[in-house]
Amino acid sequence: MPDLIAGRLDVMFDSFSSGYLQAKDGKVRALGVSSPDRSPLVPELPAISEQLPGFISMTWFGVFGPAGMPQSVVNKLNASFNKVLKDPQVKEQLAKMGIDGIGGTPTDFTKKLATDTQEWQKVISDAKITLQ
């Protein structure tokens, strides 16, 4: 972020919680959010998709253990995290950072991982983005 603040960059896509704070402090100028709709935290900031239909992209947070964890242990952890996500205090603290709690089963997560990987695979191979 220091490079952008110094004015040497043209544009940057940052995590909402970080970029939002920098913009609020007047260190950078925010042009839009990459969610389908505007964020309730900054309703005056447009969603990029309003001006660029189809441009939607989210960052997600998830919990994993190593492969081979006993199912009963996975289920117990899963149940606990799901319960915590329903807590109003937790919801509020996350919302303040522009984060939406989701939850679900481990299988839901496996499916989400597969779908996301397919989508980004296409974006990255189309652009021929490679590390050098």
Binding site: V11, M12, F13, D14, S15, F16, S17, G19, Y20, A23, A30, L31, G32, V33, S34, S35, S39, L45, I48, S57, M58, T59, W60, F61, G62, V63, F64, G65, P66, A67, G68, M69, V74, L77, N78, F81, N82, L85, L94, M97, G98, I99, D100, G101, I102, G103, G104, P106, D108, F109, T110, K112, L113
Partner: peptide
């Protein structure tokens, strides 16, 4: 081993 899809958040341009 996936445990849970916890949360999501947008990016900001």
């Amino acid at each position: 081993s996936p445990v849970i899809y916890l949360a999501q958040s947008p990016s900001i341009m």
